[in-house]
Structures are given as C-alpha cells and as structure tokens.
Design a protein around this nucleic acid. Structure first.
Lengths: 200, 200
DNA sequence: CTGGACTTTCAGAAATTTCTGAAATCCGTG
DNA sequence: CACGGATTTCAGAAATTTCTGAAAGTCCAG
C-alpha cells in the first residue's frame, strides 16, 4: 500500500530535520564538483546519515524528486559501489544503504576514481609512447608524455601497494604524516652507505 | 559526448602532428571527468607538450575554437595555477606555458582540488557538528557526520604534512610504497621499547 | 590624444546534461 | 497465466554549461 500523499506544495526537500537537510543540500551542490549530479549527491548523503536502509519511495519523498530520477541515481551509485541493496524481511521492495565504515567508503572512492580518471589516461599515454615520433615536435611531446606517464605510474604503484594495508596500519601511517620522512631519511643513509661500497 | 566525431569541418583541430593531436583530444574528452571542460583540457594538453610558450592565437589556430573561448580557458587555467604567463622579448602578446616539473604540477593539482572539493565540505561538517541535535534522527546523523569529518581531517592533516616534503623525499616515499608499513611496524616496536628508557 | 595591436567581457546560441511522466518490464502470487 | 506491486526505460522537457561573435576595454608608441 503506497501512502503517497501528494506534497503540500512545491518540489523542495520535505520534512527532513534541518541538520540532515543541510547535509543533503550540501552534497547536492558539491556533486557537480565531484562529477556526479545533484540528485545522486543528495541520495548518497541521505543514505549516509540514515540509521537504516531506505527504499526508493522514501527517498523520493525525502528529496522531492521524481521516482525515475531516484531510480537512475541509485543505479549510478551502485555502479560506483557506493550503495548496496539490502532486503528487509516481509518487504518486497529493495532497500538501499551505504557501507557503514568510512574507511571502506574511502577505499571504494579511491578505487572508482582511479578507474575512471586515471587508468584511461595511463593507457592512452602508454599507447602514444609506443609510436615512433615523426618529427622534432613529436619527439619533444613524447618526452613530456613520458614524464607524465612516469609520475602517474609511480603514484598508482604506490596506491596499489598501500591499498592492500589493513585499515589499522593505514591509519597509523596517516597519523605519522611527514614524520615518516625521517624514517626514510634514515633508511636512505643506510642504503646509500651500502651503495657507496660498490659504486661512486 | 563528443561533438567533433570525424567531420572534416574546418573547426576541427588543424595541422597538429597526430601524436600531439591524440594527446590533446584525449585531454579534451577526459576534461569532463575532471570537472573542467573540453576546451580547457585541450588547451592544457597543448601547452603541456609544447616546447615553448604559446600565445592565444596560436592556441586558437591549433585547436580551432574561438578566440574568446581560448581567453576564458586560459583564465580558468590561471585560476588553477596550472599555466603561467610568460613574456617573449619584442612581442607584446602574452604567452602561456605549464610548469615544467611534473611534480610541481602534481602539487598544484592536489592543492587546488583540495581547496575546491574538500575544504568546503570540511567546513560545512564542522558547522553542522556544532549544532545541538533536536531529535534522535539528528543525533544519529551527527554521529555519522562526525565519522566523516574525522576521516577527512586525518587525510588533510596527513596531506598538509607530506606536502612540505621536498620532491626528492616524496619520491623516495612513493618508491617505498607499502614497505614503509614494515618500517612503521618496526619503529613502533623500537619506540615503545625505547619509551621505557628514554626518547628518540 | 589617437591608432592599432592585443585581450576580455558578455548576451545569446548551441550543446550537453539532468529530470520527468508515461509506458514497458519484471516477478512472485493467487 | 493473469494480476498487481515494484522497478526500469526512454523520449522529450527543463536546466545547465559551453561556446561564439561582436562590442568594449587596455595599453603603449607616436
């Protein structure tokens, strides 16, 4: 039974508590800077602060957007692995929730953004670097591309590496911040000392 | 998505070497995923691989877009600190170039994206966390916001920390990858051992 | 000043993205 | 297998963003 009360007036966000409304609206506006649209941002924010999974109609009512828009938004969020379907006993409708652990969310975000924003460029660069330059201009361009490729590869290698760490260790590393540099410095000395015996 | 498919229109990119053209076109298409528009992406790519600074008209000719569009694109890239003006002796026109060092570019990008994508959210979260929750729903929402805020703050603190490192050290750190975790682990032991006697 | 080389601004056109309602599809039940 | 609730699809409407040409602005040499 759908208790679909027609909205009292306009299409605005309805009776959400002000705190939640502010949060949802902010994510909606931020959405564009993050490459997602307003509705998707709002849906995500709403699910993120919701104590239990919501179904599509609840989202429609809370945000005041069309059912089909919510459907598409949820679809996109699922493609991003940012929401998952939960089933509630004795309820045929799909319910949706965000992962509870913020670290998990961070991992998913990093992974997906890398997949969409970095990997394609990396692969184009690789391809272009394979070709033989046909002029001085192309040679120079390729050298620049090689620089870019090298940097991105270093970054992604590092990322692939640290993403394997358990959250516990990751947090420790974060907490260390640049103090870790001192460690590296120390290691560096040891290494370069060792190297000096053979070379230089 | 793409407008200029294979039309031999005179508005297309002109006599760029194929390698450079491919690079420029890729950055144009990637632009949308990066929150910049096609022209801005293309301008950046073009300047990035150019051996010397270009003036606006050269960009117009290379990309086949309007002069005003180039002007706006350059303006945006300058706002991002991704291109700088260079002056060529005996030439009144402004010339533009990207920073040569890819690490410098990385720093600029990180800084600007943080400024645009993270800082506003952090400040909204802080503000919302100050308010007294008026209901159980708000209380729960605030708890979730606090989790998010905590994580973002940890990340930005880490970032503020490591961005101070010289490129040299930064590269070392990257190269270490997750092996740094072992160092941390070891240090952890040493430190906790040492703490019983003395420090550092 | 004035003329000309260079650049920016801006209103509207063009392109793209987002959103919607209606229709179609799916799927378990009676 | 027909019914009905739940969901998705999709064509077009609405909103937003990007792009352009024309006009205005800037700056300097003469």
């Amino acid at each position: 039974m759908t208790r679909n009360e027609s909205g009292p007036s306009d299409r605005d966000i309805m009776q959400l508590p002000p705190l939640i409304q502010a949060f949802v609206l902010h994510f909606g506006e931020m959405g564009s800077r993050w490459g997602i649209n307003r509705t998707v941002g709002q849906i995500y924010a709403l699910l993120y602060v919701s104590p239990e999974p919501l179904n599509a109609d609840q989202i429609v009512e809370a945000l005041g957007v069309s059912r089909s828009n919510v459907s598409m938004g949820l679809r996109e969020l699922q493609a991003w692995n940012l929401v998952k379907v939960r089933h509630i006993p004795d309820d045929r409708r799909d319910h949706f929730a965000t992962p509870g652990d913020v670290w998990e969310i961070l991992r998913v975000l990093a992974e997906e953004r890398k997949k969409r924003e970095v990997d394609p460029t990396l692969s184009v660069l690789r391809e272009l670097l394979m070709q033989a330059p046909a002029s001085e201009a192309e040679r120079h361009a390729q050298a620049r591309m090689a620089e870019m490729h090298g940097l991105i590869e270093q970054l992604t290698n590092w990322y692939e590496d640290v993403k394997k760490l358990e959250t516990e260790r990751l947090a420790q590393l974060l907490a260390l911040g640049s103090r870790v540099a001192r460690l590296v410095e120390a290691t560096d000395k040891v290494v370069s000392l060792g190297r000096r015996k053979r070379k230089e």
